[in-house]
């Protein structure tokens, strides 16, 4: 763009810098405390299928009878006791069916910012992967990916949903890095 420019007329006076201060002190800083009990640990408990009806060694067998997902406390990447049981079953199942490579998908609930949740999901996937390795699953069968808060499974505005979305899902095959 070309510009031919000289001030026409008049002159602006300098504006006084006088920023208004709006101090809003937030005093309630208690993060939501996660319920550690009564969470579904597999698709059967989620009502997704009947136990025992799946062909052994199939995707459905893994999802329904073993449990494909574990849950985390708010901002936490620790593998809870209930999650350890699920991952132990996963490790046993993967030992029994050694042809499967798996991807651990890490997820976060929506009560955080996008960038942080991408990293938090990755952390959860990593700690899940580390646990599976500690239970004998070869590292070269395991990949991870994080979807942050972008792929929730439960949609509501309270902890009953957020606690289901803070999860790591072990996917047979799957994509990841």
């Amino acid at each position: 763009m070309s510009r031919i420019d000289t001030p026409a007329v008049g002159r602006m006076q300098t504006i006084a810098r006088n920023p208004v201060m709006i101090a809003l002190v937030m005093t309630l800083a208690i993060a939501g405390c996660a319920s550690k009990k009564n969470l579904p640990n597999n698709a059967n408990e989620l009502g997704l299928g009947g136990a025992g009806s799946a062909t052994p060694g199939s995707q459905q067998d893994f999802t329904v009878n073993v449990g494909d997902r574990i849950f985390f406390d708010t901002d936490s990447t620790s593998i809870r006791a209930d999650a350890q049981q699920t991952l132990d079953r996963q490790a046993q199942w993967l030992a029994k069916y050694p042809n499967y490579a798996v991807t651990v998908e890490g997820h976060a609930d929506e009560r955080g910012t996008r960038e942080y949740n991408l990293a938090l999901g990755a952390r959860r996937a990593a700690s899940t992967k580390d646990y599976l390795i500690s239970r004998g699953v070869p590292a070269n069968r395991l990949k991870t990916i994080s979807y942050g808060k972008e792929k929730p499974v439960a949609v509501c505005d309270d902890i009953s949903c957020w606690s289901q979305n803070r999860r790591a899902v072990t996917v047979l095959g799957g994509a990841g890095m």
Partner: peptide
């Protein structure tokens, strides 16, 4: 491409 010419108009 925004070819723009500005001319100041006398007052």
């Amino acid at each position: 491409f925004f070819r723009l010419m500005v001319v100041i108009l006398a007052g």
